[in-house]
């Protein structure tokens, strides 16, 4: 934390008549991107390879961690609490500084890009929380998703509405007034509006009911079958592995097990440790 930020401690931050802490950002938007390098032959579509790093100057959370996803497939990251699942995804998205390793997308090395530029390079990212604009309508949320595009976005919007008919009915409603599951749909829809090359979801089913979860997974499968690779962090390991083409089990920021969903489900150790028997 900066000196300026700590200088008043927590003073005055309770007084709603002078300060507005809602919706405040945490990402450093001023970080400039470095150059884009060349990819390597034989790379998967997206790969974060041998990533080591942590937040700020703190200790390393990721240790030589590798995550990859192929065209048209679903890859999931699972693991116990605090294993660095979300951190691994954020590392791929450029939200923490890697000390080692690289991130390559579609034949390009994008390790030096900041998150904004990774969106432009084709990453669609859905954060776990605060992933919509609550006071804006569903339609405006989608428009904002397509902010960087200058072409006609109506077709994409139509596709999103077809994918999520429930929110299509509420397109003129404020997104903040929707139910939890519908909000997640808006959040995914917003990310799809950039027409990304890969979709990254950070625990999309956190806090939604099992029925809604199943429906969301159905939608995600539909997206992947449409040709878009999906990388997803999931708390509900069993369900996630059921739909996964590839699954990564992380333990303490390192790869513990890797395989297809079915393989890992068949692995006794994985089942015992992470799937509860």
């Amino acid at each position: 934390m900066s000196d300026q930020n700590a200088s008043f401690g927590n003073r005055g931050n309770r007084d709603a008549s002078v300060v507005n802490t809602k919706g405040m950002g945490t990402i450093d938007g001023t970080r400039k991107s470095g150059p884009v390098g060349a990819g390597r032959a034989g790379d998967p579509f997206l790969i974060g390879e041998a990533m080591t790093g942590g937040y700020g100057k703190g200790a390393d959370i990721l240790n030589d961690c590798t995550i990859a996803v192929e065209q048209g497939q679903i890859a999931v990251i699972v693991g116990p609490n605090g294993a660095g699942k979300s951190t691994a995804m954020k590392a791929i998205f450029g939200m923490l500084n890697l000390r080692q390793g690289s991130v390559r997308l579609n034949g390009q090395d994008i390790t030096a890009l900041n998150p904004q530029d990774r969106v432009k390079a084709g990453m669609g990212f859905v954060p776990q929380v605060n992933n919509i604009f609550p006071s804006m309508t569903v339609e405006e949320n989608l428009e904002m998703g397509a902010f960087i595009r200058n072409d006609d976005i109506r077709h994409t919007m139509q596709q999103v509405y077809e994918l999520f008919p429930a929110v299509a009915e509420k397109r003129k409603q404020a997104a903040g007034e929707l139910s939890g599951g519908q909000r997640q749909q808006v959040a995914v829809g917003r990310a799809l509006m950039t027409q990304p090359k890969v979709l990254m979801l950070d625990e999309p089913t956190a806090g939604v009911s099992p029925i809604v979860m199943d429906e969301l997974f159905d939608r995600i499968i539909a997206i992947a079958r449409g040709g878009m690779p999906v990388l997803m962090v999931e708390q509900n390991a069993q369900q996630a592995m059921n739909i996964a083409d590839k699954a990564y089990v992380l333990v303490q920021g390192a790869n513990a097990h890797t395989g297809t969903g079915a393989e890992l489900m068949a692995n006794d150790e994985v089942r015992r440790t992470f799937l509860g028997g």
Partner: peptide, 13 residues
């Protein structure tokens, strides 16, 4: 959008 959610606005470009 920026007023609602600074981070998401940034990520939206």
């Amino acid at each position: 959008a920026y007023s609602d959610n600074e981070d998401l606005a940034l990520l939206s470009g």
